[in-house]
Design a binder for these strands. Structure first.
Length: 271
DNA sequence: CCATATACCTGGCAGC
DNA sequence: TGCTGCCAGGTATATG
C-alpha cells in the first residue's frame, strides 16, 4: 500500500513516540523478503535514536547500526503501548520500553534488514541506487531534467523506477502525470522543459498533499496510529477507468505499462 | 549501459 | 459454496 506519503505518514506516526526507547525484545514471524542479517537478540539493549526515511525505506537509527524497514506492497506498522498477541501476518515485533512496534505484512514483500553502518552492506546495496528525494531541495528542476534526458523509456516507467526520483509509486505516477497533462507513454527524454517544470511541481504537490492528508487508502492503508488516509476520495485518474474526467468528462483510460496499470485522460493528456 | 520480464506472497473479487 | 483466474500500493534480479 505504501508509496512515499504512506511511508512518511507512518514514520511521523511513531517516530517521536519511539525515540529514546530501549529495545527489550525482538520477535520474528514468517520470513520476509530478506533475512534480518543478524540474530534478533543482538538488537536487544540498543536504543532507538531517531527514525528517518529514504525513499520508501524507514531507517531506525540504533546505537550500533541501522535497521531498515520496507513495507513492500501490503505492509504496515503499528505502534502500540498495550500488548496484544501477534496475528498470522505480523512478522516482526520490536518491543521497547515505550511500546511495541509491529510489522504487519500479508504478502511479505516487505523487509527488515540490519546494517551495522548505513555505509556498508546490505544497506548500501538497497539505498545506493535511489534517486532524489522529491520533497527535498536536492530535487531541483535542472537535476530532474538531466535525469530524464538520459532515459528513453516511457515517463511513467521512469518515475516508477525510482532511480531519478524516489517515492512515486503506481498511484501517484498516474496522478502526477494527469496533473501535468503528460501522456504516460511519452518517452522521458522527449519531455520539453516547460513540461518538466510542470511535472516537477506536480510530483511535489501531489506527494506533499497526500502526506498532509494522511496518506492514500486505496484499499487498506492505516498509519501506525490507526488512522486511515483519504487520498482515494481525491484520485483524479487512478482506478477511475471508464469514469468521466473531472476536467473534460472524457472517459479515463487504463493501459498496461511493464505489467502495471496506468490510468490517464486521453484528452487532458494528449501527449 | 539500457529496457523489459520475472520472481517473491497472500487475499479479495468476478465469473462460472 | 467453491473453484479458477486475475488483480493489487514494490523492487531486486535475471534476461535480452
Amino acid at each position: 500500500m505504501p508509496e512515499l506519503p504512506e511511508v512518511e505518514v507512518t514514520r511521523q506516526s511513531f517516530a517521536s513516540r519511539i525515540a529514546g526507547a530501549r529495545i527489550a525484545a525482538v520477535r520474528m514471524g514468517k520470513p520476509l523478503r530478506w533475512p534480518l542479517g543478524v540474530a534478533p537478540e543482538s538488537l536487544v539493549g540498543q536504543s532507538v535514536r531517531q527514525v528517518r526515511r529514504r525513499g520508501k525505506y524507514l531507517l531506525l537509527d540504533l546505537d550500533h547500526g541501522v535497521l531498515l524497514l520496507h513495507l513492500g506492497m501490503s505492509g504496515s506498522l503499528n505502534f502500540a503501548t498495550q500488548q496484544s498477541a501477534p496475528g498470522k501476518h505480523d512478522h516482526m515485533d520490536i518491543e521497547t520500553t515505550q511500546g511495541c512496534l509491529r510489522l504487519h505484512d500479508p504478502r511479505r514483500f516487505g523487509a527488515a534488514v540490519w546494517s551495522r553502518s548505513e555505509q556498508q552492506d546490505p544497506a548500501l546495496k538497497l539505498l545506493g541506487q535511489l534517486g532524489m528525494e522529491p520533497l527535498s531541495d536536492e530535487f531541483a528542476i535542472e537535476a530532474f531534467a538531466k535525469g530524464l534526458k538520459q532515459r528513453s523509456a516511457a515517463i511513467k516507467q521512469v518515475l516508477l523506477a525510482g532511480d531519478v526520483v524516489v517515492g512515486v509509486g503506481n498511484i501517484y505516477a498516474s496522478e502526477a502525470l494527469f496533473l501535468s497533462g503528460i501522456r504516460p507513454t511519452l518517452r522521458a527524454q522527449k519531455l520539453s522543459m516547460p513540461r518538466i517544470i510542470k511535472l516537477h511541481a506536480a510530483i511535489r504537490s501531489v506527494l506533499a498533499r497526500a502526506v498532509a492528508k494522511g496518506g492514500s487508502t486505496l484499499r487498506d492503508f492505516v498509519s501506525a496510529q490507526g488512522k486511515t488516509g483519504h487520498f482515494q476520495l481525491e484520485a483524479s485518474v487512478y482506478a477511475r477507468q471508464g469514469q468521466a474526467c473531472h476536467i473534460c468528462a472524457s472517459p479515463i483510460r487504463q493501459i498496461k505499462q511493464g505489467q502495471r496499470s496506468t490510468f490517464f485522460c486521453p484528452t487532458c493528456q494528449k501527449h
